[in-house]
Design a protein around this nucleic acid. Structure first.
Lengths: 340, 340
DNA sequence: TTGTAGGCGTTATCAT
DNA sequence: ATGATAACGCCTACAA
């Protein structure tokens, strides 16, 4: 009768003595059903061990039960954290997780994404920075009928489609923390130009300095690209200055650790000779010595929140929290500057 | 006529003046079709811009066009590399990539995987180590009607279901390289007990030493867990010995770098005072200074090969290569030992 | 509140 | 080699 050996909606309908539409209504938790019928059908479902066929539902609804993470981000730890967060968000549901990298520099990126969406028809999409900032790509999701959430460092869309961290505020807090420790010659290692998160982080740095009435010394602001090497390079330049900074804020942990290596290679002790603060709170930050004081970026929480917005009712997504705060993790890489 | 606005197989059939089954045969490259009909239908397909609906095909075939990576592996870089490899393998096909982590320590792992396979019905599954070693989980894939490939450090299954690296041989080569440089007091930092890859890597170490007629000094074999910290700990113990080793082989890069940190913290220069070799060739190995000499683990290639085995014809999978060689990457962390 | 009829887009079966 | 017809399992629209 059934090729797969599994009961279908028809089997349930027959066994329960109702139509399959009624069974369908039970599956989909339709509100207009007598309590009696619902209970009875639910019992039959349980008795038969019926599990609705996801592919058939997907076919009828023209939507797969899948959340896709679309990204153009080379950072392995970030990706895995996002995946973990999404998986937590869809735990105990019928949803699965797909991953689709794209090439930001490709002229066909929009076409590539459209094709992906039309092929796989994911229920929803999580867009990671930096491509989450592109309105045209978000529009693509809307056109394809996908729910979507854009992750970033600033609010990119309506609450329904946004999950962000408050990088600016968190950095301001971190730099203020350095200032409160007594530092005033504070260096900044920037992130790659042209992206929002580095800009926000730099903004927070400047705000903290301005708030404390300290002028930002351009000599102490070094470019970086979020890579370990760029942190080493910037660190080298900083510690070799005739009057080096007493503290460094790096826009991510990898660069902060690069700067640590550079400082140490030049004979400086950390934190005694120079304090260092990072951003992200990657596992590495607890692995180096001294443990890196850094800003915890709640990327797992953000991804979980994004997934829940997508699979939950739209009105709930609109009212749900979209700001997940970054917070300072005080560890071992900061002390007050040496008295001169 | 068509709700989605897209042409369906019916539209093609009508326009081409054939039955939809014939169109289906063209889509599926059925061999028994007259060249003339095929050409004509193909032209109609192109004219109409017809793209077969993946969900409908999936429904009819009871298989989604998806490759799932099932894993219980905490290493972010490994996961991302595997994902990249699989994506390369399915590039320009209609397949997508799903990711499903599982908990190795959970008693319900088999049930969890079965449920996932029955829910999402992936076309194929890539099993990562260490769970790829469990025959019962592979059997689960077979029962669920999924193609599958098991990745590992030894041949775990028939060629059709296997992609492996030759860790043992590669380590033997790496340690022989150290011996050829003049080292004889060579330490080993092991991987976590109970898994195959650490066992193979240790085996390669022992074989190289035996081949050179050097007895393995148990004092110089330290346990590790593949983590940075365990490398630091093992490294500390080794360099503090009254007669420390002149070289260390660590079973992965993270531990090798941990050992580098430990050595340097104890006043040793690398490679002058102590040579270090790792395994994996993670990005980090080219980021530290000196660049780490390490064994390149071809994980991306392995994953690509796995994906191709899965989506290609079975007979091809059986005959395709299943062994991807690991090779030594000579960089800056090895020199001959100091003359006494 | 519940049921009937029909459709979603493809593949499989079995003719011809 | 090709076609007619019936699945596949669910959902929507409309009717009762």
């Amino acid at each position: 009768m059934k090729a797969t050996g599994k009961p279908t909606i028809n089997d349930v309908a027959r066994a329960a003595g109702v139509s399959k539409k009624t069974v369908s209504r039970v599956i989909n938790k339709s509100p207009q059903l007598s309590e009696k019928t619902r209970k009875q059908v639910e019992k039959t479902i349980a008795d038969l061990g019926f599990v609705p066929n996801l592919q058939a539902r997907a076919f009828a609804l023209r939507r797969n039960f899948i959340i896709a993470v679309i990204h153009d981000n080379p950072n392995a730890q970030l990706l895995v954290n996002v995946q973990q967060g999404v998986l937590e968000g869809i735990a105990d549901t019928e949803f699965g997780l797909m991953v689709q990298p794209v090439d930001r520099t490709s002229p066909t990126i929009a076409e590539d994404i459209r094709e992906f969406l039309e092929r796989q028809r994911p229920f929803g999409v999580v867009l990671l920075p930096p491509i989450s900032e592109r309105d045209d790509l978000a529009e693509l999701c809307r056109e394809a009928g996908c729910r979507f959430v854009r992750m970033g460092s600033v609010k990119l869309d309506e609450a329904e489609h946004t999950v962000t961290s408050n990088d600016r505020e968190a950095v301001r807090e971190a730099v203020t923390y350095l200032i409160d420790k007594g530092h005033s010659r504070i260096a900044l290692i920037e992130g790659p130009p042209g992206f929002t998160s580095p800009r926000e982080r730099r903004g927070g740095f400047e705000e903290a300095m301005a708030q404390a009435g300290i002028a930002v010394d351009d000599e102490l602001v070094k470019p970086g690209t979020y890579t370990f090497e760029s942190g080493v390079n910037a660190g080298e330049e900083l510690v070799r200055m005739t009057k080096p900074p007493t503290a460094i804020f790096a826009c991510n942990d990898e660069m902060a650790i690069g700067a640590m290596i550079a400082a140490r290679r030049n004979g400086l002790l950390i934190p005694e000779d120079i304090s260092i603060v990072g951003f992200d709170d990657t596992p590495l930050s607890s692995h180096v010595w001294p443990n890196l004081t850094t800003v915890h970026w709640p990327i797992v929480d953000m991804a979980r929140a994004a997934a829940k917005k997508i699979i939950g009712p739209p009105e709930q997504a609109a009212s749900a929290e979209w700001l997940l705060p970054s917070t300072l993790m005080e560890r071992g890489s900061v002390v007050p500057p040496k008295a001169k």
